[in-house]
């Protein structure tokens, strides 16, 4: 039996290795052939031309814009929501609201996409956009921002709740108001947990595909405006793969490699944040130990 269990435990490693291998074996040679700089920083994506060109720089830029903007929206609103739930909300309401938010975290991303496509995009086109285009970075960021809200609220609220309440009481005892104690003492103390939540949110925003392709437009153009049809890395893979073969396919895999490496970096920084947090906790313990 032990061997069966052991083999199963190996499966995760095997799966990761296979995924990495398949992507890199097909993707890296293509990047090498195209030229590393030309692929990453080339600004023309014309895969179906007689003289094709594979530059994903516009997609990288679009991904960065969408991620940054959606995380700003999501974190801004989500963190403040968590703070409201933490101290400024009638106690009776906290549990049901939290449960509701948790439940809403399960809404499939394609439904967010549909909502974006039929509500957000027309709204922006008609009332906000100076160019008359509703698709684009702003729509995608709004939809993604709403989508990552539940995650950010839960993570932030958890890290706020994990801060010892004695800090809060201590601050009140020194004459701070409830609000001062919350913003000046509790919020900084929960910093590392909230930061981990930010990294998690960035990961989701970078990796999201469905909600994005339904509202971003999809032209492989260099983004110059928030209201312009563009393409993220994920959208590039999804849209390209449905209609391509041969070299184009390799180009998509290479895009996948870039995305994969990016999420790996995020993952590593996420675990580093966690380790950092643990070290700090250990440090505290040691200090206490030496005092004794």
């Amino acid at each position: 039996m032990r061997v069966v269990f052991l083999f199963s435990a190996f499966f995760s490693i095997l799966a990761l290795a296979t995924i990495t291998m398949f992507l890199f074996v097909s993707g890296v040679p293509f990047i090498a052939k195209t030229g590393f700089a030309k692929f990453l920083f080339g600004s023309d994506w014309i895969p179906l031309a007689d003289n094709p060109s594979y530059g994903i720089f516009p997609m990288i830029v679009a991904s960065l814009y969408v991620t940054a903007l959606s995380v700003i929206i999501g974190i801004g609103i989500g963190l403040l929501t968590a703070i409201a739930l933490y101290k400024f909300c009638p106690k009776k309401l906290v549990a049901p609201i939290r449960q509701m938010i948790n439940l809403l975290a399960g809404i499939p991303s394609v439904i967010f996409g549909l909502f974006g496509m039929t509500i957000v995009v027309p709204f922006i086109r008609d009332y906000v956009s100076p160019t008359g285009v509703g698709y684009g970075i702003l729509s995608a960021s709004l939809v993604l921002g709403i989508m990552i809200l539940p995650t950010i609220v839960s993570v932030s609220l958890d890290s706020l709740n994990s801060v010892s309440n004695t800090y809060y009481e201590g601050a009140l005892a020194l004459g701070a108001t409830k609000e001062q104690a919350t913003f000046k003492i509790m919020l900084p103390a929960a910093k590392s947990g909230i930061l981990a939540g930010v990294v998690l949110a960035v990961g989701r925003a970078v990796g999201e595909t469905m909600a994005v392709i339904m509202v971003i437009g999809g032209s492989p153009e260099r983004p110059t405006s928030l209201f312009q049809s563009v393409r993220t890395l994920t959208a590039n893979i999804a849209m390209g793969a449905m209609e391509s073969s041969g070299d184009t396919l390799s180009a998509l895999i290479a895009t996948g490699v870039v995305l994969f490496v990016f999420t790996l970096i995020l993952n590593v920084s996420f675990s580093l944040l966690k380790i950092d947090k643990r070290d700090k906790a250990d440090g505290k313990k040691e200090k206490r130990g030496t005092k004794k």
């Binding site: 296979t18 995924i19 992507l23 990961g203 970078v206 990796g207 595909t209 793969a241 996948g256 995305l259």
Partner: peptide, 8 residues
């Protein structure tokens, strides 16, 4: 990201 799983 799930799209990378899809690609794989």
């Amino acid at each position: 990201p799930s799209i990378v799983y899809g690609l794989f």
